[in-house]
Design a protein around this nucleic acid. Structure first.
Length: 872
RNA sequence: GGGCUCUUAGCUCAGCUGGUUCAGAGCACCUGCCUUACAAGCAGGGGGUCACUGGUUCGAAUCCAGUAGGGCCCA
């Protein structure tokens, strides 16, 4: 057969992925004979396209799920997408605008029809892109957070919370996104340092010619001022106590109040209070019973109540009022400063406006108990566990969660209002009516008296329910799937959504399933560029994910992503790592090609190949043990590196070189069969990391049956291994390297055969390896010796002395000088050990093992010195 | 401001419960090779005051305290 000298990923990947799909290997059904291993995907937004974060995150999930599948577990990776209300609604509104349709001209139903059309068209793109990466999801299970199952769950949960008093409706200060025109939660506000100005503005004191100066970063809110606040301990302002001030421009008379909240150091120590437009001011307003004047519209332009600048944006009004105040002589000065300003996560250029609004809130403190406890006691394990701290801190200081979103795309809040202040909840309007009648005793209420809340719930309220709802655990808690798959095993997600999603899933899990949603959480880092900047569209530093796959192959990109991603640490993405991945794929391909193209004959086994086989068998087993340990700790980049070295160093550089027949000669059948067997083992081991090439080689090694795929092959079990044999072989490798080193430093040709004499305590133990040494170091003879050899290069391995006679290449003065240097270094080394050994405290306190080790170190160094002295 | 966290080779990172010739890996770099699987390769090599200061200890990259600098979260 002819095998291409280069591995061609593009061709292989689409072919193999389709086969896996066709054979149904991704599918999972409950199987009581198998242990379940379930992962629920962090559902990407329906608006999303595949980016580097997804690539990392989903590569990791695929590695875990593929290994579990091979280990004989019932592996089930559930994919899905998130409706992402704010982001999606914005996209749909934008799309409609292009068609000339205004959202406000549509009914809710009409809008949702457009939104679902949009979702059906674009919502699946990202999942298709995941297939390019090799994701082995059970696609038949694909969920969507607005599926009826999950939407019903949202209603159930809301009603349940309502009945338990865990949700309440209140008029409070919330974070308002004026672009999306909805409330968002605290977690969705991103604080950024920005350059700003601090304006010092003078207010007149009523009935006096005195004035007071306040400092503010938002002079436009002066129009909504309803008090001035001073610190009662501030001696500078005692004369103002009980007085009233006059707001510039609007000439409103406002009280001067006292509160220790005011920072004496900041600005003038004198604070203007605008309860409608600042959270702290709002609190002051409540405390001191102040009037609240809201001067902003929902889109953050000024309204009629502002009296001035009506219709201008906040920013325009700020500019204009600073000019006008200057002209009217109220502006004392303007200082530049830097301060933190909250921006919307969804609209990064939009400044969040604190806004008073009537909203539904979840009383978080009532429901976080089990979620905190079960993470702290490792009932749910976090990897890395440092995130337990962050989690704990958040839960212990948790604030009530505003869940109303003034949008249509999402699950409409199942609360119905009637009369002046009646509220009822229900899965349907009819149910709510029943409740209303029961609550009021007024049986004359009709459906027409009830009006459903216009808002939808926060997307995260909805996605927090997915682990239960995707197995239909709300409506049908006794169903087989739910009982089998829940709780799931591993959640793989970025640490940035630990509060948004992870914590809320855990809370919901304990609240509604009485059980954790998953056993372990593996937090991945954020993908950054080489300058440590976050990848973003605006910086243009995010590589095209699919382009990378085209260029390096999915396997190459997977390796590239994993190589640099220690758990929880951000990773600096470097395209060179993908290149390294694709080179690795090519290396694997060539090793396979090498074996496969040998001419095989029924001849006795080559003695070097025999040793090689014994050794490599042991090495594989050693590495398998190591890998299982690393996987259990989620040290995936280290697991990959172990695999990488097993393939590149052990298999290619040593094993293949040992079994390689002389030029033009055939390989013996036994060695060939062994080598094929080893490649099969190696393909299994690399499969979770590099699913495509391993599958391709698997099928090229021999004819395979219908279900004989490496993807579902059995993961190598720990067969145990002969550690002594591995050690001896590694000593021999060291000797071979030593000989090559001699050759290299003396400028001897690789073609020139050398001799080797070994003065060993047990020369017999080397005898079996003689063919190996001869083959790999081009040595004509290997003999034992009892005496030292003159005019030879020497080195020591494990107390055994190795001599390579030099003949005409005798040591030069330079070599002697080097030897002298080495002797001096060793003597210093011995001195240090002697110091330790003569320290009674050390000898008495240190474990015997450590003392013995020091003695051995000394003996070894002395032997080396003796050997080096011969050169001089 | 409060909390968390980090600082080890040119770069990115391992280094567990203090003790192995422990100062490591990958990449990058240097030297020599187109050796008949692979130049996307082979064989060798150099490179670090483990941020700093002090403490605990027979012994510290590792534990403790402080300092400097970076990052993150929350106000």
């Amino acid at each position: 057969m002819s095998i291409s000298t280069k591995y061609n990923p593009a061709e292989v990947e689409s072919k193999r992925y389709q086969e896996w799909l066709d054979k149904g290997f991704f599918k999972s059904t409950p199987n009581p004979d198998k242990e379940p291993y379930t992962i629920i995907i962090p559902p990407p937004n329906v608006t999303g396209v595949l980016h580097m974060g997804h690539m990392l995150n989903n590569t990791i999930q695929d590695v875990l799920i593929r290994k579990a599948r091979m280990e004989g577990k019932e592996a089930c990776w559930v994919p899905g997408t998130d409706h992402a209300s704010i982001a999606t609604e914005a996209k749909v509104v934008g799309m409609l605008r292009e068609k000339g349709i205004k959202k406000s001209d549509l009914t809710r139903e009409e809008f949702l029809k457009y939104a679902f059309e949009w979702k059906d068209k674009y919502g699946g793109i990202i999942l298709n892109q995941l297939q390019r990466l090799g994701a082995s999801c059970d696609w038949d299970r694909t969920f969507f957070t607005m599926d009826e199952k999950n939407s019903a769950a949202v209603r159930d949960v809301f009603i349940s919370y309502f009945k338990k008093g865990y949700v309440y409706r209140d008029y409070k200060m919330v974070n308002w996104d004026p672009t999306a025109q909805t409330t968002i939660s605290n977690e969705e506000v991103i604080y950024k340092d920005v350059d700003a100005a601090l304006y010092y503005v003078e207010y007149e004191i009523e009935g006096s010619d005195k004035k007071v100066t306040i400092a503010t970063t938002r002079p436009e809110t002066i129009l909504g001022d309803t008090a001035i606040c001073i610190n009662p301990n501030d001696e500078r302002y005692t004369h103002l106590k009980g007085k009233k001030a006059i707001v510039p421009m609007v000439n409103r008379v406002i009280p001067i109040i006292e509160d220790e909240y005011v920072d004496l150091e900041f600005g003038t120590g004198c604070l203007k209070v605008t309860p409608a437009h600042d959270t702290n001011d709002y609190d002051l307003g409540q405390k001191h019973n102040l009037e609240t004047i809201d001067i902003l519209n929902d889109d953050a332009t000024l309204n009629e109540d502002a009296q001035f600048y009506v219709g201008m944006t906040r920013e325009e009004a700020r500019k204009q009022i600073s000019i006008d105040l200057k002209e009217s002589g109220h502006m004392v000065k303007v200082e530049s400063m830097r301060h933190k300003v909250g921006f919307s996560e969804r609209n990064p250029d939009t400044v969040i406006e604190p806004k008073l609004s009537l909203q539904w809130f979840v009383d978080m403190q009532k429901i976080v108990g089990p979620a905190l406890e079960n993470v702290m006691n490792d009932n749910i394990q976090f990897f890395p566990d440092k995130f337990k701290n962050t989690y704990k801190h958040w839960l212990e200081n948790i604030k009530d969660w505003p869940i109303s979103r003034q949008l249509w795309w999402g699950q409409q809040i199942p609360a119905y209002y009637y009369g002046d202040d009646g509220v009822a909840v229900g899965k349907t309007k009819e149910e709510a009516l029943e409740m209303a009648i029961k609550d009021t005793g007024n049986s004359s209420l009709t459906l027409d008296d009830l009006k459903q809340d216009e808002d939808v719930v926060d997307t995260w309220f909805s996605s927090a329910l997915v682990p239960i709802s995707c197995f239909d655990g709300f409506a049908n808690p006794d169903n087989e799937e739910y009982k089998y798959y829940y709780p799931t095993q591993t959640l793989v997600t970025g640490w940035d959504i630990i509060f948004f999603w992870v914590a809320r899933m855990i809370i919901s899990g304990y609240e509604f399933a009485n059980e954790k949603p998953f056993e372990q959480v593996y937090f991945t880092g954020m993908v950054r560029d080489l300058q440590r900047r976050k990848m973003s569209k605006s910086l243009g530093n995010s590589p095209d994910a699919l382009g990378l796959i085209d260029q390096y192959g999915a396997d190459g990109v997977r390796v590239g992503m994993l190589l640099s991603s220690a758990a929880g640490n951000d990773l600096l993405f470097d395209e060179k790592l993908c290149e390294q991945g694709s080179k690795f794929a090519n290396k694997i391909w060539n090793s396979f090609r090498f074996i496969k193209t040998q001419e095989v004959q029924d001849i006795p086994q080559d003695p070097a190949a025999k040793i090689a086989g014994e050794w490599f068998m042991n090495r594989i087993n050693e590495v398998v043990v190591e890998l299982d340990d690393l996987f259990s700790k989620f040290r995936l980049s280290e697991a990959l590196m172990s695999t990488y070295k097993l393939v590149w160093d052990d298999f290619c550089s040593w094993y293949l070189e040992m079994i390689k027949p002389k030029y033009g000669e055939p390989i013996d059948q036994k060695t060939y069969d062994q080598a094929i067997g080893f490649i099969e083992q190696v393909m299994k081991i690399i499969h979770p990391f590099m699913p495509f090439i391993s599958e391709e080689i698997w099928h090229n090694l021999q004819d395979r049956g219908d279900k004989d795929y490496v993807m579902i092959a059995e993961w190598p079990t720990h067969a145990g291994f002969d550690a002594d044999q591995v050690k001896k072989t590694s000593d021999v490798f060291e000797a071979i390297t030593g000989i090559r080193n001699v050759r290299s430093s003396k400028g001897m040709s690789p073609k020139e055969a050398l001799e080797l004499k070994i003065k060993a305590t047990d020369f017999v133990s080397y005898e079996a390896y003689i063919p190996v040494i001869q083959k790999l170091a081009n040595v004509s003879s290997v003999e034992g010796t009892d005496s030292k050899i003159e005019n030879a290069a020497t080195f020591i391995i494990e107390k055994d002395e190795f001599y390579v006679p030099l003949g005409e290449y005798a040591d030069t003065a330079e070599d002697k000088e080097e030897a002298q240097k080495e002797i001096s270094r060793l003597e210093g080394f011995i001195k240090g050990i002697d110091k330790k050994l003569s320290n009674e405290k050390f000898v008495n306190n240190a474990p015997e093992k450590v003392v013995a080790m020091e003695k051995k170190k000394k003996a070894d160094a002395e032997a080396k010195i003796a050997l080096l002295n011969q050169k001089l």
